[in-house]
Amino acid sequence: MSAKESTRVEYGKTLAQLGAENPNIVVLDADLSGSTQTHHFAKIFKDRFFNVGIAEQDLMGTAAGLALGGKIPFASTFAMFATGRAWEQIRQTIAYGNLNVKIVASHGGVTVGEDGGSHQAVEDLALMRILPNLVVLAPADGPETRAMTRWAAGYHGPVYMRTGRLALPVIYDDSYVFELGQGSLLREGGDVTLMGIGIMVQACLDAAAGLAQEGIEARVLNLGCLKPLDWELVVDSARRTGAVVTAEEHMVTGGLGSAVSEILGEHCPAPLKRIGLRDTFGMSGKPEALLKHYGLTAEDIKQAAYKVIARKASHLASPVMDLKAPSLAGR
């Protein structure tokens, strides 16, 4: 297996490269530049890096003002504080004002580990997904992080991107190009579709490999662009395989599982299981132990796949198909 890469580190390094390419890029942090990895940029571009101290609400407002002044601000802190503490600033100023602010928040999910439930954002994607104008991203590996960061710098509008603490296996090669609203098909298969986001994409691939040994062919999607979601790929995959498992390091409410349920419920009902946290907060522990505790492993995805495949037989008639495009707001 190739070397592992952490999404937060790849973000930080890409940001430093972008800083050299585009003098309009500015970076803000709230006293976590070592953790969010904005320190790479800060070291080189001292006059374009602004630490606002431990003040996330001010972080978002200051970023908004810099965007209004023609800059391309990347504002970083932990996902919990960015989307929780400063949700209203993001809502009122950045999203409502449709400003060119990139919020890149690290330490998403339970793999934050030892810091415990207070620092593990398991609802950030939900909090961001409901906001109009905002694009919501969660990369699955290093190359996707680099591609999404570069894309965000060139896109005019507000973006939220979640990065994580763990080093992850590399899925894509460096030719990967991110396109807004596009999911990617990572593995073809006709029995079930495994739809992942963030660190759970690799878990979906591992589950598919395990299922294949038992003669079950799983289709695997990376839906790292959560909003706007690639609804056509979601509906088409459900239609082709007739059974779906979603997997996210997040509550099953409000994130990918919800988004897929909403689309399939309206356009192509199919047996579905959502892998994620269920109405609970995180806790301290080693990331691996936490992933196991919350049912976020490849094995959990496999078990869910068996269940939805079994339900296919009893699923009355064939799935109802309605390929009419939902509105953009519904994506």
């Binding site: 500015v26 602004f50 200051t62 970023a63 908004a64 003002g65 810099l66 209004l68 002044g69 600033q89």
Partner: peptide
């Protein structure tokens, strides 16, 4: 905060 960003 927004004014600060504009000033920067």
């Amino acid at each position: 905060s927004i004014a600060n960003g504009l000033a920067l």
